[in-house]
């Protein structure tokens, strides 16, 4: 339960350092370099595009169940602005669709 192997510890620390480089790197570069206008405009559009790019391939691969789930999430989220309710509705719809399929 509480063994800690040196190779596992090294791997975990390596992953931590690499991930922190990603977390802090973008902002660190931004502080050092003045971005051209186009890149600043890109930053405004980046958040939505990032999550869409995240979700689109997974939704396509997930088939009917994930489409039903996604539709339920968006519907409930738009109607109630409550992400918790939306998530539960989405899981329920995905579940129902996978049972029906």
């Amino acid at each position: 339960m509480t063994t800690l192997r040196w190779d596992a510890l090294l791997a975990i620390l390596g992953m931590w350092a690499a991930t922190y480089l990603c977390r802090a790197g973008g902002y660190a570069v931004l502080r050092a370099v003045r971005l051209p206008r186009f890149a600043q405009a890109m930053l405004q559009h980046l958040p939505g595009a990032l999550f869409v790019a995240y979700v689109a391939p997974a939704l396509l691969a997930g088939g009917v169940a994930s489409w039903a789930g996604a539709a339920a999430v968006v519907g409930v989220q738009v109607a109630t602005r409550n992400l918790g309710l939306a998530m539960l509705a989405g899981i329920g719809a995905a579940w129902a669709a996978s049972l029906a399929a």
Binding site: P47, G48, F51, V52, Y54, V55, A58, L59, G62, A65, S66, G69, A70, V73, V74, Q77, V78, R81, L83, A86, M87, G90, I91, A94, W95, S98
Partner: peptide, 18 residues
Amino acid sequence: PLFFAGLGAFVGMLVPLW
């Protein structure tokens, strides 16, 4: 279907970003 939760959270977070 429980794994849909991970994907569903991202879908839901897109709504306020629109």
